[in-house]
Design a protein around this nucleic acid. Structure first.
Lengths: 123, 123
DNA sequence: GTAAGTAGGTACCATTTGGTAACTAAAGGG
DNA sequence: CCCTTTAGTTACCAAATGGTACCTACTTAC
């Protein structure tokens, strides 16, 4: 984006997709859903490969979007617990829909070959 | 991604989200849905701001994913027409769901403030 | 004194992504 | 001959994204 071209920024769907499509974002949501409220370092360990930097970023974004709530306990050392909000539950049904479509495609033998670099093509 | 960390690549939802979250991708799908099958340059003109490079890339990805079909007419000059597949229609219902949630959030005064750079902050 | 844990923040770096401009071949119009 | 159209491709460049490593302030354990 350079200057005055707003693209299709007014579109709510794009915004939500953009929020959800960041790396680890869905994983975070699913872990919080499956395991209940979690503390920061617990999430780091629960999501193998995520860096604290990105996890912080994602949690902030999700908090600003109202999908995650952050509870800070000013003990020493501090305890910060993250949990899903009601809004996130709303989203969950939608995500289940996507999951359904995705899985049905995979079941039909659908191979994800979008031209994006394959993250699993290690030796 | 560096080497052997597969992240959560096995997850179909992530794959689909990754496909859909690229810039212009949803826009392309919506234009094809609203306006019916379109030729390449028609799409370029229909989506203000998209470059032929990215449009080609997206259309290829969507074709590989089985959401768009490409009809090549070997005339001179050639005519290439893109249209949605049945699979894309399946996806449409899901997208409508997301659209519903997104719009309800917006209606409640939800502001997209995810910490991502705001694409509309020109001035 | 040293190590570990808590919840991140910061600097730096590599990769990914997307944009611009120029180019292609083959035909038609002036 | 020169310009236009079609459907892209290519080279180049800037910005966004995400990873690693190191830092904080404070306490407990050894």
């Amino acid at each position: 984006m350079k200057d005055g071209v707003p693209a299709h920024s007014g579109c709510a769907v794009e915004q939500v997709l953009r929020l959800l499509s960041g790396r680890w974002t869905l994983y975070i949501l699913w872990r919080l859903q499956d395991m209940g409220p979690q503390r920061f370092n617990a999430l780091v360990r629960l999501i193998p490969g995520v860096s604290p930097k990105v996890l912080t970023e994602r949690l902030k974004a999700l908090e600003n979007a109202g999908l995650v709530s952050r509870h800070y306990e000013p003990t020493v050392p501090p305890q910060v617990t993250y949990s899903l909000t009601d809004r996130a539950v709303e989203l969950r049904a939608t995500l289940d829909q996507i999951a359904g479509v995705s899985r049905s495609w995979v079941a039909e033998g659908w191979r994800m070959d979008t031209g994006f670099p394959d993250p699993a093509k290690d030796g």
